[in-house]
């Protein structure tokens, strides 16, 4: 039942992805030493989000899948963020 040929990711792409991830790790550690106040956490989460997206897209092959899976993953992330948001309806206003 193989409707489509599986995509083979070249080794080179995978090494490049690793380097990007390592650079981003370096950035997030370096940013900790700077003083941005509350922005620090935001930057850290933003960098982590970018790293996660890269892992999902390349290492977890979402880039090469049909549309269904990326949509489901996005849906789950949105669901989680909504739960977090609704929970803070309570904690932000106590």
């Amino acid at each position: 039942m193989s409707e489509e040929k599986t995509h083979i990711v070249p080794y080179k792409t995978q090494v490049i992805v690793l380097f990007v991830l390592l650079i981003l790790t370096g950035i997030t550690v370096a940013v900790t030493r700077l003083e941005f106040g509350a922005l620090n956490t935001l930057i850290a989460m933003l960098v982590a989000g970018i790293k996660a997206t890269i892992v999902l897209a390349w290492y977890m092959h979402l880039k090469y899948e049909k549309r269904l899976l990326p949509m489901l993953v996005a849906g789950v992330v949105i669901l989680f963020l909504l739960v977090l948001f609704v929970t803070f309806f309570d904690y932000s206003y106590r």
Binding site: V83, F89, D90, Y93, R94
Partner: peptide
């Protein structure tokens, strides 16, 4: 249905806005 859980907790001391939501 995923976002209505708080209606089990109306008297437990949540914030007013959460109650309303």
């Amino acid at each position: 249905g995923y976002f209505v859980w708080g209606h089990h907790m109306f008297t437990s001391g949540m914030s007013g806005r959460a109650l309303f939501a």
